[in-house]
Simulated scan of single mutants.
Amino acid sequence: MSEQPFRSGFVSIIGRPNVGKSTLLNRILGEKIVITSDKPQTTRNRIQGIHNLPGGQMVFIDTPGIHRAKSRLNRFMVDEALSSVQGVDVILFLVDGAADPEKEAPMIHEVLAGVESPVILVMNKIDLIPKGELLERMSAYSGVFPFREIFPISAATGDGVEPLVRLVYDLLPEGPCYFPDDILTDVPERFIVAEIIREKIFRLTRDEVPYSVAVVVDSFKERENGVVAIAATINVERDSQKGIIIGKKGTMLKRIGSDARQEIEQLLDAKVFLELFVRVSTEWSENSRMLKEFGYE
């Protein structure tokens, strides 16, 4: 009996903001490596998640949501997403299952113009949609673009995710193991720590604040007693935003720090001493030097 070939490849997850791309990647990996929130545009960078199977390795690329970009930061985010459809082996195009296919069609055509890789349309959040409506929308999407498959899932509950992964695996070519089989992502721990802090700000503060926040980890050191000491700076664009993040008598900053520290301890499997600072970096989202400094190149 001949041995099955080892399959591997890169799989881009793209779509509008807030359709569940990061939730899907975390679900596939069985671990949280990408931050999530109910606000759009939470993800800013491309992040690779590595999923190993017997006989294969799949490298999933989570991307920022595709939207009409205004600021330099937003243009960077959209460029990150659009460039991810080039040179990959499979594209997962995520849509909110409740979205109107007719309204989604122009964006689908714009993003996928000239793409040669197989594209699977993934209809997410099916747990929120009556079955009859879902079937109607699936039928409508089949006339929008020559998708390889139209696949309904719920990233939140896991429904349909395992069969989706098997379908993607079957579309991958024979190839090498690109990463060691004991890592989940190629991004450094410092990056994930900064993202965890930013997620807590997304979840705890008012709407206008999270979009003006950039988190930079200034130091990351393990002490002799095993405690990991981390210092990070939360950059905002205005004094009023700094006041909201610090809160009355520092209560909001303490809450952000406490929630982030607990999750960072789970990530690192170690005790963590987390120190947070808040700095006003005026209009950093339009400043090319600051964007580079904060990791948005």
Rank of each mutant, 00 (worst) to 15 (best):
I14F: 14
P152R: 15
L112V: 06
M107K: 08
E283T: 10
A69M: 06
L121S: 03
E116A: 04
R68I: 15
T23E: 13
P152N: 15
I244G: 00
R166K: 15
L25K: 02
E286D: 09
E162A: 13
R190I: 05
I33M: 05
D127A: 07
V34K: 00
V144E: 04
T251I: 13
I264E: 02
R255G: 00
G56A: 15
I183H: 08
V168C: 07
I245V: 13
N74C: 08
V209K: 00
G143L: 13
L135F: 07
D79A: 11
K103F: 09
F93Q: 12
D259P: 00
R44D: 04
A214K: 02
R166G: 14
A231L: 07
D96R: 08
L92C: 11
V59L: 07
P176A: 11
Q86F: 09
R16Q: 13
G20V: 09
P173H: 10
L73P: 00
D269Q: 07
T233S: 12
E283D: 14
E116L: 06
S71K: 09
G250F: 03
L291N: 09
D79V: 07
D127C: 05
G250V: 04
L128M: 11
E237F: 05
E162D: 15
H51C: 09
I126E: 12
I153C: 07
G158E: 13
E263C: 01
E110C: 00
I13Q: 08
V209T: 05
P130A: 10
I230R: 02
G87T: 03
M77E: 10
E275F: 06
V278M: 06
P163N: 14
P40F: 09
R137M: 01
G55R: 13
S288P: 09
A81I: 04
D181P: 01
I28Y: 03
T23Y: 14
T23S: 15
S142E: 12
P180V: 07
N235F: 09
A81Q: 07
R255E: 10
V88H: 02
N287K: 13
S2A: 14
G247C: 07
Y178N: 03
M123K: 10
E110Q: 06
P118W: 06
V122N: 05
P130D: 12
A231K: 14
K271Q: 07
T36W: 11
V88G: 02
V59I: 15
R148Y: 11
D182T: 10
I197Y: 10
G160T: 04
E80K: 01
L267H: 02
I256A: 01
K39Q: 01
V187Q: 11
G175W: 10
E133N: 03
Y169R: 10
V278G: 06
I244W: 02
I256V: 12
P130G: 04
I197W: 07
S212K: 03
V78I: 07
I28E: 05
D218V: 05
E275I: 01
T205L: 08
A113N: 06
D89N: 12
K70P: 01
F273K: 03
S2Q: 12
F151H: 11
F60Y: 14
I28N: 03
K242T: 02
T233P: 00
M138L: 09
S12I: 05
Q262D: 09
